[in-house]
């Protein structure tokens, strides 16, 4: 027992003190900053983008499709595309994820999250989520697990993942939604009591990501239901997820 206590004291406090102010190392590939005026229209970035996230004239990047590989940044000799280390880029509106020239992270965040008073009132202080992986590669799943570890400790905000959909207030979907998993996903959603929210985590869930051209994905679930929050990334960073959900619940 003394050994255990010694280990405990040695470990100290591992939690990130202020999740909202935490920053990620500058090598992190996050929010894209675009400069149309530097773009020479060579279209190299459009050709190299594996998910078709980049559009030219005017230059834009769809973060819902982007897997943040950074290939566009590397191939652009004009410096028109830079991936910054900003990580708070969740949105309640799919169209807001399309970043255009000159948009800064602050411009983005002004309109990114539209809070819903009803949701805030009912779920604002306690949000229990059920996660469903529907073709996810286990990257986003591991990062969602990491949200609850001692470093990120999402539980301190009253946000937890629960075992049963009956205990949940919402569903977090990862993966492009495979045909073989489509039915189970619908079933889980049906089992969650109202009011309930849908969160899409990661490029695969939002747009199909790198798997968008696969002939085994079935995204009809998303056509039938209204998505409340989009969290981009490949995989999502725990800080992106936690801050996204916190803003959605307007705890900031």
């Amino acid at each position: 027992m003394f050994d255990t206590l010694k280990s405990r004291i040695y470990q100290g406090n591992q939690a990130i003190p202020d999740i909202k102010k935490a920053e990620i190392h500058q090598k992190f590939r996050g929010f894209p900053v675009l400069k149309q005026e530097l773009c020479q229209n060579c279209a190299e970035c459009e050709k190299i983008c594996p998910t078709g996230a980049i559009k030219l004239n005017p230059l834009s990047i769809d973060m819902g499709k982007c897997i943040f590989c950074g290939d566009c940044e590397n191939i652009c000799t004009d410096g028109a595309i830079k991936l910054s280390n900003f990580h708070k880029f969740s949105s309640t509106n799919r169209n807001n994820l399309i970043i255009t020239s000159g948009m800064s992270i602050d411009d983005f965040n002004v309109k990114a999250i539209e809070t819903n008073d009803k949701i805030k009132k009912i779920l604002g202080r306690s949000l229990k989520l059920r996660q469903v992986s529907a073709g996810g590669c286990n990257g986003c799943e591991m990062e969602l697990n990491a949200c609850s570890n001692v470093n990120f400790d999402m539980g301190r905000f009253g946000i937890d993942f629960v075992a049963s959909p009956r205990h949940a207030d919402g569903i977090v979907i990862t993966g492009p939604i495979t045909e073989n998993m489509a039915y189970a996903l619908e079933d889980v959603y049906k089992a969650i009591p109202d009011p309930k929210i849908i969160i899409l985590a990661g490029a695969c869930a939002i747009s199909g990501g790198i798997f968008q051209e696969s002939n085994t994905i079935n995204r009809s679930f998303l056509e039938k239901n209204n998505v409340d929050l989009y969290i981009p990334g490949c995989p999502i960073h725990p800080l992106t997820f936690i801050n996204g959900v916190l803003s959605f619940l307007s705890q900031n």
């Binding site: 495979t178 790198i210 051209e213 696969s214």
Partner: peptide, 30 residues
Amino acid sequence: GYQHRNIEQLFLKNQKFSLHLAESIVGDTV
């Protein structure tokens, strides 16, 4: 079988981007 994304076919379909596919075969063994 629930996770089946037919990734081997995607390798043939999208040869230019197959590296990114390889990174997503198993996300814990990138």
